[in-house]
Amino acid sequence: MPINISRIMSWTFRDLRPYLRGMALATRTGRRPSITRTLWDSSVGKKTVMAVSGLIMLAYLVVHMLGNLKVFFGPEELNAYGHWLRHMGEPFLHSHWGLWAARIVLIVSVVAHAVSAYQLSRRDLKARPVAYAHKRRRAGYATRTMRWGGIIVGLFIVWHILDLTTLTVNERAWEGHPYQNLLATFSTWYGNTIYIVAMAAVALHVRHGFWSAAQTLGAGNARRDKTLKFLAHALALVLFAGFVSVPVGVMTGVVS
């Protein structure tokens, strides 16, 4: 049998290849981790998770705000809309399935957003252990309040669900009648205060968050920057005005 030198050489080198490679490039060679792993392990990847989940929630907020405006067209229209939400997709889907599908997407988004925010914030705080003795305001108000604003919005979501979904803390608590329930909430001083403060926090969060998400997803560039900033401001303003118009409507007697 003839000895095939090149074959033997290629076997030998195949076995040696990982070691040779390790010597040539000391860092990060060998098996490639999965895309999910790469995303979750990297600060840039985790920001991508934040950006995508944030944009999903932002899209939901726009839809939610538009739906809320039905309150200005009387109890029948809003209550019928509430009824439709529970029966979305019927008869193809069972009752509440459409609603729960939306809820699951939102729950996953909230959890992904919060967990990555927590982990990234811990990394950020660890990276700057010693503060400067000469204090100076850094970045704009919306940017500086992202973390606390996010926590405020998170707590508000809990309150909001207990108030108008489960009706646990609602004064009226009339199932299937969102119009009457929200009227009850916005007839209390605390209901109005909590809601308006939370909407201000949402608006500030969206103002920095939308533009940041665009940067994280790589959509930002010098030419597009003005458009993206304008969109972020417009979204924040429209959401704030749309949401706050409901308690203001109740307070001024437009909605009763």
Binding site: S42, S43, K47, L120, R123, K126, T143, S212, T216
Partner: peptide, 21 residues
């Protein structure tokens, strides 16, 4: 880009919150 970003993370630098500072 993959290796530089990974090394940046390993060295203990923080993440970007786009403050623009």
């Amino acid at each position: 880009v993959l290796d530089m970003v990974a090394t940046m993370d390993d060295e203990g630098f923080g993440g970007c919150t786009l403050t623009g500072e």
